[in-house]
Design a protein around this nucleic acid. Structure first.
Ligand SMILES: [Zn+2]
Ligand SMILES: [Zn+2]
Ligand SMILES: [Zn+2]
Ligand SMILES: [Zn+2]
Lengths: 166, 166
DNA sequence: GTATGGTTCGTTACAATATAACATCTCAAT
DNA sequence: ATTGAGATGTTATATTGTAACGAACCATAC
């Protein structure tokens, strides 16, 4: 199923999901940690699209599958998925998004579209390089960073400029 | 009063406060907006130091001055101060910090020390330039950005390496 | 003067996000 | 069988943030 009816750049999104879930499962085995049913379901729900998802939305969506689910259920799963690097927290939205590069250790920047709500993860080596120089200048030792940009994505810009022909 | 007893880089902090409050008052006049007593008090409380302050902490601190203060009181003042660019919201802390460059329009990055909790605002032109190039590559139109780095500041690194001689 | 209207503030209620604490379960290793 | 670590169930609560509506204030216009 391609998501050609959705606004953001169309692609075979089931491939995204399968890739992410398969790789996550594999990494859990390698690392000797458990991708339990709850954790996998939460990861799948986050991967439903490329939007950032809120914890309580996940809670509502998982209840049909896990009727006993409570806030702690979700937050524990989110903690696990974050520790494993399978998802990122979007600080400026209090929400969570699937990581699109599970294999590499990386710092990322997030391009968040206000219109279609898609979140694009980019690695932007030149930005990260400039950041490291800035840290050196400041004598700062960085442990963790959140770089979140809100605006309008390329796809929305295009479709805004070419309105539907009625 | 110099804050030489505090951990972060010592400086005459009352100068920081006075500069910020004076300039803010002046800018409000220029802009035809009102720096009311509540707004000024909140700004002063935020400027108590270079830490990020939480809204409900501000609420507790302002109650002696404004006994009727409620959450909305604080959030309204914070909204105003943000609109005027007098403070920044630290997304990854749900907290607020005084802006150290009221005159210029700028994007900033925040270096947040986990140890002393100081927040240093930097403008980092090379980073911002690299970011703009990344946006161009991605076809992304940026409206607002949050760049927040958590780690250990220069002052703490130094004092960690030179323990007090007992 | 007083009517009008915009801004600020007081107040109540509530929504949304997140964690603490403790009990229970599971399952593998001993 | 016993034990211990990890995962989950459960209840309660803490923290962060908004909605909605009315009153007060103050400047301007009539
Ligand atoms: Zn996809
Ligand atoms: Zn978009
Ligand atoms: Zn200072
Ligand atoms: Zn420090």
């Amino acid at each position: 199923m391609t998501n050609s009816t959705e606004h953001p750049a169309p692609h075979n999104h089931s491939l995204c999901i399968n890739t992410a879930l398969t790789l996550a499962a594999q990494l859990c085995i390698e690392r000797g940690v458990q991708l339990t049913a709850i954790r996998q379901q939460v990861l799948e729900l986050i991967w439903a699209d490329h939007h950032a998802v809120k914890a309580y939305d996940l809670l509502e969506r998982i209840k049909p599958l896990q009727s006993s689910a409570k806030p702690a259920t979700i937050y524990r799963a989110l903690d696990f998925l974050r520790e494993q690097g399978f998802i990122h927290r979007v600080e400026s939205l209090n929400a969570f998004v699937g990581c699109t590069d599970l294999r590499s250790i990386h710092e990322q920047l997030l391009l968040i579209c206000k219109q279609c709500e898609n979140v694009e993860e980019r690695h932007a080596d030149s930005v990260m390089q400039a950041l490291r120089q800035e840290f050196a200048l400041a004598g700062f030792t960085a442990h963790h960073q959140a770089i979140e940009i809100h605006g309008i994505c390329a796809t929305c810009t295009q479709s805004n400029n070419t309105p539907p022909l009625n």
